[in-house]
């Protein structure tokens, strides 16, 4: 578990781990915004966020000397964090029964 080489990298790894979750949120939010506005730009930003997430996840491998089970965890994480926000978005639409018709409540005025 303890490798002397890690002494100088654990703190960077911690920040990268935090950044990874932030990029995950960015990916999820922009994917949602892209779905809302059908804007290609949001879709690109969302994919770029995911790329940053993936870069962070892969950077953890050398920084923490991950091997065995932990490499499997990173692989699962890359798949799971890609799929989960898409599924959650689909779920948000489906729970509201959206099937392409006009979104409910869209006509109501703002405050």
């Amino acid at each position: 578990m303890v490798d002397p080489g890690r002494i100088h990298t654990f703190a960077g790894a911690a920040l990268i781990g935090g950044a990874m979750v932030l990029f995950g949120a960015g990916y999820a939010i922009f994917h949602a915004l892209a779905g809302l506005s059908r804007s290609r730009r949001f879709a690109y930003i969302s994919l770029v966020s995911y790329a940053a997430l993936a870069a962070c996840a892969l950077a953890l491998v050398p920084l923490l000397d991950l091997e065995g089970w932990w490499l499997g965890l990173i692989a699962l994480l890359l798949i799971g964090y890609f799929v989960a926000p898409r599924f959650i978005w689909r779920l948000s639409l489906a729970v509201h029964g959206e099937g392409g018709g006009p979104p409910e409540g869209a006509a109501r005025p703002e405050d």
């Binding site: 999820a28 949602a32 809302l36 799971g80 978005w89 869209a106 005025p109 703002e110």
Partner: peptide, 25 residues
């Protein structure tokens, strides 16, 4: 590693709601 997912789900759903339903608070 799974624990952030429900929290992200909440944020995504909030974005959906804010975008689709201009609720009057």
């Amino acid at each position: 590693a799974l624990e952030p997912i429900p929290l992200v789900a909440m944020v995504v759903h909030a974005v959906y709601d804010a975008g689709r339903h201009s609720f009057r608070s």
